[in-house]
Nucleic acid binder design. Structure first.
Lengths: 142, 142
DNA sequence: AATTTACGTTTACAAATGTAATCTAATAAA
DNA sequence: TTTATTAGATTACATTTGTAAACGTAAATT
């Protein structure tokens, strides 16, 4: 039973650091975020505390202090956010939005090739159009 | 100076209905959301009120009641959300996440072709890899 | 005309979030 | 060993969000 508590925007900053470092002490996280976000040390401590409660982080004691690790991979967390977002938006417009997004963000050659492969496969049984799912039922404007 | 107030998840439900209908009375929105989300009429009214404050909706008087319209297009709103999301996540992993996303969501043939065109163009000057931007500066783990 | 209903506005209230100060116990420095 | 510093835990507090009831006035019904 994986917990589904959402990670907030601020908490996300903390997670990114620990994901990237693999593990980290509060001091390390604080240093980086004080620089990046201009937060007070307390703020970062609070966020770490909340992430512990949400079980997004675990800590192993190292003398007096803790070393924190993430309980979920960055990939999985990102995937969840992205999927959740698109599921809450109009299915009919997802394609266009995605196209625009793809054109905006940085992608490596490898990323692009992977995307091309996925698309080449997907186009085989793609529908001619995707219906809008913004209204419940088949309520239509009369 | 377009206002940048974020639309919350609940408010988003209201917007989707009005976007789809083009314009709508509170009664219409209430009917649909009571059905879809099981909210009380009051709740929907509150959300409409907040969206008015955030200037995401405008109203034209029609007798006693109002007819609401969105001040921003669904496409643009979706685009913003999607862009904002990806900008807050690891640039290095965006590609993989996107690939997974593309494989999961519904896309029409046309959508796919559009994506393919974007990618074909983009691959020309794509970098070999995209750097992780989760840490500020060039702090590296020593 | 009297009454009920509908619609917009105001008020309510708990939980989540952003941001932080303070307290306490342990460790390091003097 | 006394003192200063650190690190985690507790408390704080304003704003936003989710969810809704109550209120006042215009409109529709009786």
């Amino acid at each position: 039973m994986t917990e589904e508590l959402p990670i907030t925007t601020s908490e996300w900053e903390v997670m990114r650091i620990i994901w990237t470092l693999g593990e980290a002490t509060s001091t390390e996280v604080i240093q980086l975020l004080v620089k990046k976000r201009d937060w007070k040390a307390s703020t970062v401590k609070t966020l770490i505390g909340r992430l512990m409660q949400k079980q997004m982080l675990t800590a192993k004691k190292e003398g007096h202090s803790n070393i924190y690790q993430c309980t979920i991979s960055e990939r999985v967390a990102m995937q969840r956010e992205a999927t959740r977002l698109f599921q809450n938006m109009c299915a009919m417009k997802n394609g266009e939005v995605l196209a625009q997004l793809v054109s905006e963000i940085q992608l490596s050659k490898t990323d692009i090739e992977k995307l091309q492969a996925v698309l080449a496969d997907k186009i085989k049984d793609a529908p001619d159009e995707v219906a809008c799912n913004c209204l419940p039922k088949e309520e239509t404007r009369e």
